[in-house]
Simulated scan of single mutants.
Amino acid sequence: MPDPQQVAKNHWYRNDDIPGVPGPDREIQGYGEKPPVIRWEGGAKVAINIVINYEEGSELTFAMGDGRNDGMYELPFDVDDQRDLAKESMYEYGSRAGIWRLFRTFDRYDIPITVFGAAVALERNPRVAEKIRERGDELVGHGYRWIDHYEYSREEERELIALAMESFDRMGLTPRGWYCREMSVNTRELLVQDGRFLYDSDYYGDDLPYWTFVEGESHLVVPYSLAVNDCRYIMGTGFGSPTDFVDVAKRTVLQLLDDGDECGRMMSIGLHPRITGNPARAHGLAEFIAWAQQQEGVAFMRRIDIAEQFIEQVPRPASPAERPNS
């Protein structure tokens, strides 16, 4: 691997990436001016995918031997050298109260969702796994624990993926999609080598799924988004109130319905039980859902259904080895 300091010193003039740098190639251009004209369930132009990030109980804690406390807390306070019981209790709000308030909301409006689930979080609260099965929601693998995969070696990450999938299988939930907390340069290759995954969502660079190639094999990417994501309630600049969330979500739908072309697109809404599971924020979510259901050309869909309907309209491309005269 090139020495980073030497690269910084001598390659400031480059207009391309350095060959051999680990990880997927950057794909700058994408679909360009004319993306594929996709239509979703019922002929909808906009597919809304609500994602619940279920992580509570698998986050970093002194109680689990991690030697540090996790982030994404309601207040900008950190306890560095011991258990942060206040922060732990915020996470427990998500698993004790918030997740059930969200499920009641989805039941009321008959909304299918996707759950980005950490295996340990579901193991520690098996009633949530039962509810996912009962509702017919989709589970996407969110790691064995809610940890940054880039902190681990390639073989350690391979083991983490295997542990997670074994756990999901025991719960009767077999993901076909994957989304890490923070992917590593090895993640996508490991998923393709594993062979059980239709797609991954460790990407923020588009409003449509797209095909890429990994070690010569075609692989589907179904992008995620942090724009309409409740982390903005507590991290950085973002939502001061549920009104802000509703406004951003509505404006996203309106723009995608009339985006200047005929192309259909997807919209991801990222939620966390410990954040949007709080009453006022859940009320804002319900307000948006009720509004969106009244809009013509909008469908709420699971991520797996978006992937499969995309594949029907944009079939898997041949790999270089499968192409004539390759």
Rank of each mutant, 00 (worst) to 15 (best):
G117F: 08
Q193W: 01
L102E: 10
E159V: 10
T114M: 06
L60T: 03
L102I: 08
I275N: 08
G94V: 00
A280S: 10
D137A: 02
S225M: 09
G57K: 08
F310E: 03
I269W: 03
L139I: 15
T114F: 03
A227P: 00
R135H: 07
P4H: 02
A119C: 12
R323Y: 01
V246F: 14
Q294E: 14
Q309P: 00
E296S: 13
I52V: 14
R127M: 12
G277K: 04
I28E: 11
G136D: 01
R232T: 04
M64Y: 14
R158M: 05
T252F: 02
R170Q: 15
L173F: 08
Y199I: 05
M64W: 13
L226G: 05
V228P: 06
R302T: 14
E130D: 13
I50P: 09
A164V: 01
V128Y: 07
D84M: 08
S326L: 01
E55A: 10
L160Q: 13
D247C: 11
D17F: 08
L271Y: 01
G98L: 02
Y109A: 04
E308D: 12
V115M: 03
M72F: 13
L254C: 01
V46C: 03
R188D: 06
R196A: 08
D200I: 03
I52R: 02
N15L: 05
P223F: 06
G205Y: 03
T61H: 08
G94R: 05
Y204W: 15
V314Q: 12
G136H: 06
F213V: 00
P2K: 10
V79N: 04
R68N: 07
E308Q: 11
I99G: 03
G141W: 02
R124T: 09
C180H: 05
K34D: 09
L191S: 10
D305N: 12
V214G: 03
Q6R: 10
I99V: 15
G30V: 10
E74C: 04
G240T: 12
S241N: 14
Y152T: 06
T237K: 11
A290Y: 09
G42F: 04
G43F: 03
A97G: 00
F239P: 04
P35R: 11
D17T: 11
I289G: 07
E123V: 09
A129W: 08
H142A: 01
T243V: 10
M72R: 05
I28T: 10
A8D: 12
F62C: 01
V7Y: 05
V253H: 09
L257Y: 06
I306S: 03
R145I: 06
Y31C: 01
Y224V: 00
M267L: 15
Y179Q: 09
L191I: 13
G284Q: 00
S218T: 12
V248Y: 11
G43Y: 03
N69Y: 07
Q29H: 12
V37L: 13
L271T: 15
G117A: 14
R316F: 04
G71T: 08
E130G: 02
L122R: 06
P4Q: 04
S241F: 06
S225D: 14
R135E: 11
D261T: 15
D66G: 01
D261E: 07
R39W: 02
E215I: 00
T276R: 04
